[in-house]
């Protein structure tokens, strides 16, 4: 979500949802370059955790996915 702030930085004046409910990625954080945001996250989790991982980590084991979106 992109949140615009008022001049004294005390309140949000506008919210724009850039991406939501995209099954291709569970995003974690991003970096802004110019007018774009590049963000990273995990793709869909595998059905079962590969044997070298604890089963409890299955939900975190998706491929690394990097996405780009315009800010405006």
């Amino acid at each position: 979500m992109r949140m615009s702030l008022n001049e004294d930085l005390t309140a949000v004046t506008d919210v724009r949802v850039i991406e939501f409910a995209n099954d291709a990625i569970t995003p974690t954080t991003g970096a802004i370059v110019g007018s774009e945001i590049h963000y990273v996250g995990q793709g869909p989790a595998p059905e079962t955790a590969p044997s070298q991982f604890p089963a409890g980590l299955r939900q975190f084991l998706g491929k690394v996915v990097i996405m780009t979106a315009p800010l405006n």
């Binding site: 995209n22 970096a31 990273v40 070298q52 980590l57 491929k63 996405m67």
Partner: peptide, 19 residues
């Protein structure tokens, strides 16, 4: 949806967080 995929890394289990 306003995003496009820039890169996918096939290796499982890297568990990324920061960029």
């Amino acid at each position: 949806s306003n995003s496009s995929a820039r890169m996918t890394i096939d290796q499982l289990g890297l568990i990324p967080e920061g960029i």
